[in-house]
Design a binder for these strands. Sequence first.
DNA 1: GTCTATATGACGATAGAC
DNA 2: GTCTATCGTCATATAGAC
Lengths: 226, 226
Amino acid sequence: MSAAPTPLDRRQRRRLETVEEVLDIALDIMGEQGVAGLSVGEVARRMGIRPPSLYVYFPSKNALYDALFARGARSLLTAMQQVFASSPRAAQSAEARLLDLGQAFARWSVEHQAYSQLLFWRPVPGFVPSKEAYAPAVELFAHATQQIVDLQQRGLLRDDVPADDIQRDWTILIAGVVSQQLSNAPEESFADGRFSQAIPGLVRMFASHYATPRRSTRRTSHVNKH
Amino acid sequence: MSAAPTPLDRRQRRRLETVEEVLDIALDIMGEQGVAGLSVGEVARRMGIRPPSLYVYFPSKNALYDALFARGARSLLTAMQQVFASSPRAAQSAEARLLDLGQAFARWSVEHQAYSQLLFWRPVPGFVPSKEAYAPAVELFAHATQQIVDLQQRGLLRDDVPADDIQRDWTILIAGVVSQQLSNAPEESFADGRFSQAIPGLVRMFASHYATPRRSTRRTSHVNKH
DNA sequence: GTCTATATGACGATAGAC
DNA sequence: GTCTATCGTCATATAGAC
């Protein structure tokens, strides 16, 4: 649908290039001033044009935010799909698999902080992402659910707990790492970050907690969580 | 120092009342429009005065944010001190104690979302809280460290892992719950929230992971976390 | 078709009258 | 302590040059 086979003429190609340039510059500004610090005038200033000219490409500032949201969501989805596709059905433990997934997510978040804040928090008053911009995030969530189900079906995660519940706790864990790192140590790299370094230990804790119980082991109930 | 014994005269008392009214209204606006959506003009409008009149009480919009930050941090500290002081040295398990602490923190965060966003995230471009405004948060962090150390000294948490490391993982867990709830389900109450309801299970996982190991149990290493 | 020039109304902030 | 008047900047809209 969106991948139209019709070749783009010069004008359309030039227009797309300009749109990309606007988005690149907007991303720079958000990185410097904070997500809510983006201003249309500043984008125009850096491009050497007047603010009204930008309205040829984006009908409003929120439309610009929406394009940035869509771009960020696609970037994150692409980054995670690398991991989803890696070592398919390999004899990887739940812990190793979850570690790959969690680190990829946290790494992208730390290395794309402006996108992260726009995607995960609500920093811009009045801006709500459109359904189209949000679509890659929905797809990513579905892929992540499937990863949990896969691990359950391979007997690497307990299957007497709904995948949704495991995923909820998993997202809490990773969101916590990202939230703490971005809030308290945004200048630390992923490799050096105090909070990103906690991921292996946390994943080990998580994988142990949701491991398939050994047969005939009397376990403390997981039922009364609700 | 700050609790001056000098009685306030009428003028000073009236001034403080006005300051409190400004802060109350500002909090309302942040709740409706988002933290970055606060505007000096809107505060003045709701008070029935002109915007310049507010500059008698706050020299800038960021000073207003700073007062709100300080107020929020004091409110959170007070809420948590209720829990710190409760059942002192009681024969409470680590899990029960951590559950009380985590739920109190998350409850306050969910029930004071505007403060939470201001305190935990960075939604206002150019605003950095002053040292004085930040002080209650520093004190809260120190209290929380002491809670971990207490549990270690009472033999309820393993003491072969630095309290700082345990606290880091603990803050990640609670920050994750709060972050997910505020981002994805801000309208759900603490009691009904999909993410706040995950706290008991997560605390059980956490308390088990950091429980004092039974004697002569060969355990998977906690050392190679660094 | 894409830009410039220009205008409107809101914002944060300041100066000075009362 | 509150006001009016004012400034510079912002997002946004429109008219018209090329």
